[in-house]
């Protein structure tokens, strides 16, 4: 799942060398700010075939937040 997410991060932030970990947050990626946040979310939704609620999107601040929400969806 993390590899899949990494592929999305690399596409959105146009950086093929980008490596993410669960501790990666918006502070670690220069390209990740309010201007690109929803673009990232839309790509993740397409990749994983899920939809996030507005409240969930507002809480995402790190890779761990996103992974946790996707995992919860899989369980459901």
């Amino acid at each position: 799942m993390k590899e899949q997410l990494q592929k999305v991060f690399r596409t959105v932030f146009e950086d093929n060398s980008l490596i993410i970990s669960s501790t990666t947050s918006a502070k670690d990626i220069k390209m990740w700010d309010s201007l690109t946040h929803l673009q990232l979310i839309a790509e993740i939704e397409d990749e994983f075939k899920i939809k996030f609620s507005f409240e969930e999107v507002m809480m995402f601040n790190s890779v761990a937040d996103i992974l946790k929400t996707i995992e919860n969806r899989d369980v459901q």
């Binding site: 309010s34 929803l38 839309a42 790509e43 507005f54």
Partner: peptide, 13 residues
């Protein structure tokens, strides 16, 4: 800003 972009997010940039 966020509610507008969330609604239109499929249009990306």
């Amino acid at each position: 800003y966020y509610p507008v972009v969330y609604k239109l997010r499929e249009y990306r940039k």
